[in-house]
Design a protein around this nucleic acid. Structure first.
Length: 853
RNA sequence: GCGGGUGUGGCGGAAUGGUAGACGCCGGGGACUUAAAAUCCCCUGAUCUUUUGAUCGUGCGGGUUCGAGUCCCGCCACCCGCACCA
């Protein structure tokens, strides 16, 4: 009956089947229990599950299982973010259809996930490349179009002239196509856009309600949306034109000493055309670096156009420069330069010897105080500014705005950094945009009854270009309006649209609609959403936008999709490598060339000891590099499958939860997983040592168990899995050492429940061996006795001169005087006092006594 | 440059302003064994000390406090993000 070892290779699969057959994790939306929707960001089916996925899904799994134990009806689904470029790349490289490549990957990865024993509701599984899914997406897209949230306009793309395809920014390397190596061109194409800017204000304000999102992510989104308020007004130019500018500091308008426009500003094109010096300056501006750090440190450069602008209040002529620090795509592409109170303007004015005036000072009496080497960007009172003098910055802004609007030369405006979302992709493997182009009727949505517009199966990846466009028949159709010959839209939707509403489809999946609003209302918002920080902006902002847009058009009644967001750290590993030096003949002139080559080595090829690392094959020493995110390029990846074969799913799950706080990186180590494997067996022995016949009380151990019930629950709810793990270790150690008793049996059963969300296979195996009925996955979280949480004896620290001198044991709640007397009675304390006069004694009940001399 | 985060033993990390280093890993010693594995026990921040113990110690420098890893001020280093945003 008693086995000495837990055998995951037989138990894991057995319990996974038991859960599946019993439908243990199938979510029931008609349940009257409180609902919990636990969601991890669904994976792209690249081919293999990696450790990052395992960590992500283990965290969600513990939460899901815990919530279930707490009496919640839990929805914990899984699916596949299955459209995307890698499938098309595979099609080109391996000559497989993107669909079959993707399907095969899904099958393999699903099997991997199932081996880890996740409590997932597989009945709701779908892939975004299923026509049932993307057909509903098409219908939602048409709804948005009809609500005025979708429009078309011409926009620039990266065009690869050899592959005849549009490239994503990350596919452009040094200005060349990543595959063809051809010089990339800019091309204008008519593209589809979603009006996310209509929701800029809502998306910004909504962040304030997301209390359970990381501050960091909220800030990133806030900056991305980028709200600013100011005045847009026009200067009259000496050449008769008007120059609209935007300023957030209209209060400093009397400090303006120049205007500056972007190199690609329309005004510049006239000047550049007639002046070769201007033309070459414009060229230079366009060549400049684009990273933030480069831009910040780059020298401010300008070119005087010779045109002047008339100051709206003073009538002074201000020179108009072309400047490299002004961006065409923000505001109006032109600014007024106020060098006294803007650092960039200050640097610029210093270089080109333009007047630098103070118009804001800390006090009226400081009006003539010189600016010491930099712009004064702080708050203060307006000076040297005619009718604004003496006003606060705030009042002066309002006053200038008022006068500009009253006199009709300007307007208070809000400017957003957020741009509309371009969703057109000239690719095959995505959701076809459900529109038809008719020469007579223009752009017409596909009638909903004809959805889904499915992708053709017979496609050709041999010739360059968009396969949908080249397909001989697919795009040919009849206009739904006039019935005449028409052409289907051949662009597909950005894959971010697929992940912008998938959680709604998880919550509810009727056949004839994207979702059912009532069903959605039962589950949404997602209670815990867990994933990587890399999605802090785009995915999370787009999903928030879709949710708000769908609410706006009356499809759902929830504004924010994710009540709480958790961004987990990466799984990292040491890197190994060696440098090889050799000589080879140069291919150019045949001479010997010294070559030094760095080779990364995989952990499988290396023997790692505490002294260092050596190559398994030859025993030569290997360099141990930095601990970094697991990646194929550095070869520091560990495949979950091999680890599960060796240690079982529970050991891997335990490792994922141990040691590192979940938001930080988790360093994978062989020693660490071995330790987890040993702990699984240690628990097994402890559970097997349960003696049903034991009697007697062990109050200290029972108390520890009750305390652990409370503490582990708190830790799981705070997602502090590493702390929960430490508590379980502690209780385990205490139970192991204790003599048999009823209390010990209680402690052991408690541990079994506490670890069951983390090590579900071991827990089920023990549960059944103890002849308990049903599955422990269906059991409740153990109840605790509040009376048992309180200690009746406490340890009191005694300090003197700020240092610990002794510790004493005292009954809980002992009087201050008693503690003081007890402390002074201590021999160690007396030795430290050494007869010194006691000036004060601080007593913190149940904690410490501090003697001041 | 700006914004955010982090900094505690050999390592991952604990610690409502109240015993710094819980818990795990590594390492050392021992028991069991013919032997090994497995398991169990003990030690494990540094320095000094025979023991007892003492002193130092949470990136650096100040401060508040009876008492600071924790609060305040000023720095440093590393990591992440970014948009010269008018």
């Amino acid at each position: 009956m008693t086995d000495t070892r837990f055998d995951p290779s037989s138990a894991d699969g057995r319990w996974q089947r038991a859960w599946s057959e019993a439908g243990t994790f199938t979510a029931d939306s008609s349940s009257s229990k409180p609902k919990s929707f636990i969601l991890e960001m669904f994976p792209y089916p690249s081919g293999r599950i990696h450790m990052g996925h395992v960590r992500n899904y283990t965290m969600g799994d513990v939460l899901a299982r815990y919530k279930k134990m707490r009496g919640h009806e839990v929805l914990h689904p899984m699916g596949w973010d299955a459209f995307g470029m890698p499938a098309e790349n595979a099609a080109m490289e391996k000559k497989v259809h993107p669909g079959s490549w993707t399907r095969a990957n899904i099958e393999a990865m699903k099997a991997q996930l199932q081996r880890i024993g996740f409590a997932l509701d597989w009945t709701r599984e779908f892939a975004t490349c299923d026509p049932e899914y993307y057909g509903h997406e098409q219908s939602l897209f048409i709804d948005m179009y009809e609500a005025g949230l979708v429009y078309r306009r011409s926009s620039e793309v990266n065009w690869d002239p050899v592959d005849m395809t549009v490239l994503a920014n990350e596919q452009v390397i040094d200005g060349k196509g990543w595959r063809s190596g051809a010089e990339v061109e800019k091309r204008k194409l008519d593209q589809w856009f979603l009006k996310i800017t209509d929701f800029a204000g809502e998306l910004l304000d909504g962040l304030g309600e997301l209390k359970d999102w990381p501050e960091k992510v909220r800030l990133m989104q806030e900056n991305w949306i980028g709200k600013s308020t100011g005045l847009e007004f026009s200067f009259e130019l000496s050449n008769g034109d008007k120059l609209p500018v935007y300023s957030t500091r209209p209060d400093t308008i009397f400090g303006a000493s120049f205007c500056a426009v972007a190199a690609d500003h329309p005004l510049v094109q006239q000047v550049g055309a007639s002046d070769p010096a201007a033309a070459s300056f414009i060229e230079e501006c366009k060549r400049g670096g684009t990273t933030a750090a480069e831009l910040e440190t780059a020298e401010k450069l300008g070119f005087d156009t010779g045109v002047t602008a008339k100051h709206p209040f003073t009538g002074e002529p201000l020179p108009v420069f072309i400047a490299n620090f002004v961006l065409m795509d923000y505001g109006t592409g032109a600014v007024m330069g106020v060098p006294g109170h803007d650092q960039r303007d200050f640097e610029f004015a210093t270089k080109y010897k333009l007047p630098i005036a103070r118009v804001v000072a800390s006090d009226v009496s400081e009006a003539d105080a010189p600016l010491d080497g930099e712009a004064a960007t702080g708050d203060g009172v307006i000076v040297n500014s005619d009718f604004l003098n003496g006003m606060s910055v705030e009042d002066a802004k309002a006053e200038v705005n008022f006068r500009a609007e009253a006199d009709g030369w300007g307007e208070g405006t809000t400017v957003w950094r957020l741009r509309d979302w371009g969703v057109s992709r000239q690719r095959y493997w995505g959701t076809p945009i459900p529109f038809i182009h008719c020469d007579a009727c223009g752009v017409v949505p596909v009638p909903k009854g004809q959805l889904p517009v499915t992708l053709p199966e017979d496609v050709d990846f041999e010739t360059p270009g968009n396969p949908l466009e080249r397909h001989p028949t697919w795009s040919k159709t009849a206009c739904p309006k006039c019935g005449g010959d028409a052409r289907r839209e051949t662009d597909t939707l950005d894959t971010f649209t697929n992940s912008s509403w998938y959680f709604l489809r998880f919550a509810s999946q009727p056949v004839d609609a994207p979702f059912d609003a009532e069903e959605v209302a039962k589950w949404m918002p997602v209670e815990h959403y867990i994933g990587g920080i890399e999605h802090a902006i785009l995915h999370l902002l787009y999903a928030r936008f879709w949710t708000r847009a769908l609410k706006h058009i009356g499809k759902i009644d929830v504004a924010e999709p994710f009540a709480a967001l958790f961004t987990q750290g990466m799984v990292t590993h040491e890197t190994y490598g060696k440098r090889e030096n050799y000589t080879r003949k140069s291919s150019v002139d045949g001479r010997d060339v010294e070559v030094s080559e760095w080779t990364w080595l995989s952990p499988d090829e290396v023997n790692r000891t505490s002294e260092g690392a050596t190559l398994k094959a030859s025993g030569e020493p290997v360099e141990v590099g930095r601990v970094v995110k697991m990646s194929k390029s550095k070869k520091n990846v560990v495949d979950p499958d091999g680890i599960i074969d060796e240690y079982g799913a529970d050991a891997v799950r335990w490792f994922m939860l141990s040691d590192s706080p979940p938001e930080r990186d988790l360093p994978w180590s062989e020693a660490g997983i071995e330790g987890c494997g040993r702990f699984v067996q240690r628990l097994w022995r402890l559970f097997e040592s349960l003696d049903p016949a034991a009697s007697g009380e062990d109050k200290a151990l029972a108390r520890k168990a009750h305390q652990a019930i409370v503490a582990v629950a708190e830790d799981i709810e705070a997602l502090s899995f590493n702390k929960a793990v430490a508590r379980i270790y502690e209780l385990t150690g205490a139970a192991e050492k204790a003599a048999p008793s009823e209390s010990r049996n209680f402690a052991i059963r408690t541990i079994l429940h506490l670890v069951s969300p983390m090590m579900p296979h071991l827990a089920e195996e023990i549960w059944s061996r103890q002849n308990e009925s049903g599955l422990i996955a269906d059991a409740a979280w153990p109840a605790h006795d509040p009376a048992m949480l309180v200690e009746d004896e406490v340890t009191i620290a005694v300090q003197h001169k700020g240092k610990l001198r002794d510790t004493l044991t005292a009954p809980k709640g002992a009087a201050k005087e008693d503690l003081e007397a007890l402390a002074l009675a201590s021999e160690k304390v007396q030795r430290s006092l050494d007869g010194a006069e006691i000036r004060k004694v601080i007593v913190v009940p149940d904690r410490l006594v501090n003697i001041v001399t």
